[in-house]
Design a protein around this nucleic acid. Structure first.
Lengths: 240, 240
DNA sequence: CGCAGACTTGAAGATTATCAACCACCGTGG
DNA sequence: CCACGGTGGTTGATAATCTTCAAGTCTGCG
């Protein structure tokens, strides 16, 4: 467990994107008893309706929080990345979303009971979780306005920019783009579109020299033009 | 202030929908210094980007949290009702959403500084806010899957059911329906549709003997048929 | 080689938006 | 009291957006 905590310490040192930890908060986090786990790509981790929910800190890899509909469709709510925390809310009540891995996924897992006790004993922790929670709310809010009020092209471009900004914040990708393991079908489930329409939309974005997403890599072809189109503003991703 | 606290005490006694307060939490809440305010219908209360955010507890009336787009469109994120809490997250960082009243609106207002101090001193409070936060996340999540993966008819019906369930939980409306002050245009901004299309969709719902929304009142014409259509499940609105 | 999964393209159809009227109601001011 | 304007609601015709169906390509891998 010492070794594990050691790794967790390293994780904490590189704070979850945008959510900066103060000294006290870091200390409190380190007192938590966590267990590391690994999941293969495309494995379900928990399903909506599950009891005994847990909280996950992503150490590496891409995950995916989604909701299944009786029609067979699904809506992806968020794609958490390294440093993101999953299931804070589920730890307080029933779990309404499903969780799965997209790539190979390494996480630190904390049980609900450990967490709730810890929060009550260490008030600073609550501040941390509230901040994480705030960021997540801002993200879904943006996805909602994305699907509600932007057409396929702007919507897709906006989301690719969001991913870029989130990855940049954790030191992945570069000025020109990033690697993205999402399939077009998964992207469609994020954006509330058809995989086929996503395909066409991506082609259009490419032909218009805005963004290109091919063979698992997203390339920004003209960031200025792109930002003019989407009016993307990554502020909602940062919390301080 | 004694008198005001008194009123707030009554408010706390009738706990925010679905979020049940335990004795400790109630006590902690009462220790907060709150100020009551009133807003006329359709007045902006705070705009996205505002500093010095506050937290609001709705005492009566309908409010509306939304996001404005450069295109002139807007997306309504949520329509908080009596007992709902607004701005918990904004109190922790920048404010990304705008807030306005829809009807006459009475609220209790708490400043950011008072709140953050209170949470650190009274850990139970954080549990309360986390629970409120969890419910709100569940609600946006549902709105996201609503706009992302359900067509106009199911989407509209589903939302009218959500409003019904939320109102029922605070003792408003009855078996057959409820009063709804939203205009078709506002409803459109909630659902990510055009006002015109909302109009047509409402007519269709009426003609199919499912729900009727006319002259400010929503009437459920056939709840069974409606639930078969939407597969609405109000569990996401409850937290315990 | 052959198969499976992801991606691509075309043609046709459904859903939703846009444009342009028009109606009904309500509060205001002459 | 009535004319007036404004807002919210309603309807039709037309256009854009997105989905569905159907078929095909490409690639990695047993």
């Amino acid at each position: 467990m010492t070794f594990l905590s050691q790794t967790f310490a390293q994780f904490i040192a590189a704070p979850p994107i945008g959510v900066v930890l103060c000294h006290e908060e870091r200390e409190a986090m380190l007192a938590l008893s966590v267990s590391p786990r690994h999941y293969r790509p495309h494995t379900p981790i928990s399903r909506q309706g599950d009891v005994e929910p847990r909280v996950f800190f992503i150490q590496s890899g891409w995950a995916c929080v989604y909701r299944d509909l009786p029609s067979g469709d699904r809506q992806i709510i968020d794609v958490p990345l390294k440093g993101d925390v999953i299931g804070i809310r589920a730890a307080l009540g029933p779990n309404y979303n499903s969780l799965g891995s997209i790539t190979d996924l390494s996480v630190y897992e904390i049980s609900r009971s450990v967490l709730t006790k810890a929060v009550l004993q260490m008030p600073v922790l609550s501040r941390f979780f509230m901040r994480v929670s705030a960021r997540q709310y801002a993200i879904v809010t943006e996805h909602l306005t994305n699907t509600g009020r932007r057409n396929a092209m702007i919507r897709t471009a906006h989301y690719l920019q969001e991913l870029g900004a989130r990855l940049a914040a954790i030191g992945e990708g570069n000025e020109n783009g990033y690697e993205c393991p999402l399939t077009q079908h998964e992207l469609a489930d994020v954006l509330g579109l058809t995989a086929i329409h996503v395909n066409r939309t991506l082609r259009e974005l490419r032909e218009n020299e805005l963004v290109s997403f091919r063979a698992g890599v997203v390339e920004f072809l003209n960031r200025q033009k792109l930002s003019r189109l989407t009016s993307f503003d990554g502020d909602y991703l940062r919390m301080n």
